[in-house]
Amino acid sequence: MAYVVTENCIKCKYTDCVDVCPVDCFREGPNFLVIDPDECIDCTLCVAECPVEAIYAEDDVPETQLDFIALNAELSKEWQPIIEKKEPLPEADDWASINEKRDHLQR
């Protein structure tokens, strides 16, 4: 069971999670991160580090966000690994509490 990045990450892209990942399974897009399910070792370290609570165990992904399981798998094959923490997006704090951000995901 892999971990999954969900909608809360869109337009925030805090990278605290990347810093603690022992296997470098995060991939970076323009305004979102994903986890490569083939690389994730289910260590749970990233969950507590995410300031917007965007990371879930695959079995715990909210029903309204189940499509993010496939999205993480798909985009992790297209995007490059991110292995070091970076500054969040400039508007991250403004977007952190906004729901319904799917339309803002940039591929």
Results as ranks from 00 to 15, higher is better:
Val20Asp: 01
Cys25Pro: 11
Pro30Tyr: 11
Val5His: 01
Arg102Glu: 13
Val18Asn: 00
Phe32Glu: 04
Ile98Leu: 13
Pro30Gln: 11
Leu89Pro: 07
Val4Cys: 13
Pro88Asn: 06
Ala48Tyr: 12
Asp103Ser: 11
Gln65Asp: 07
Glu53Cys: 09
Leu33Pro: 00
Ile82Asn: 03
Pro22Met: 14
Ile82Val: 14
Phe32Trp: 09
Leu89Lys: 04
Lys77Ala: 14
Ser76Val: 10
His104Trp: 10
Glu100Tyr: 13
Glu63Pro: 06
Asp19Val: 07
Leu33Thr: 01
Ala70Trp: 07
Ala92Asn: 11
Ile41Asp: 02
Pro88Phe: 03
Pro51Val: 06
Met1Gly: 14
Phe32Ser: 00
Glu74Asn: 10
Ala54Trp: 02
Lys11Leu: 09
Pro88Asp: 07
Asp36Cys: 11
Ile55Tyr: 10
Gly29Trp: 06
Asp103Val: 12
Pro81Cys: 07
Pro88Gly: 06
Phe26Glu: 02
Tyr3Glu: 08
Trp79Asp: 05
Asp19Met: 07
Thr15Gln: 01
Asp36Asn: 13
Leu105Glu: 09
Ile41Phe: 05
Asp94Ala: 15
Ile35Pro: 05
Lys11Ile: 01
Ser76Cys: 11
Thr44Val: 06
Asp38Met: 11
Cys21Gln: 00
Ala48Glu: 14
Ile55Asp: 04
Asp67Met: 12
Leu89Gln: 07
Asp60Ser: 15
Asp24His: 15
Cys12His: 02
Ile55Val: 14
Val20Gly: 04
Thr64Asp: 15
Lys85Val: 00
Glu53Thr: 12
Leu71Asp: 04
Ile98Phe: 13
Ala70Leu: 10
Glu63Gln: 11
Ile10Gln: 03
Ala48Asp: 15
Ala2Tyr: 15
Leu105Val: 08
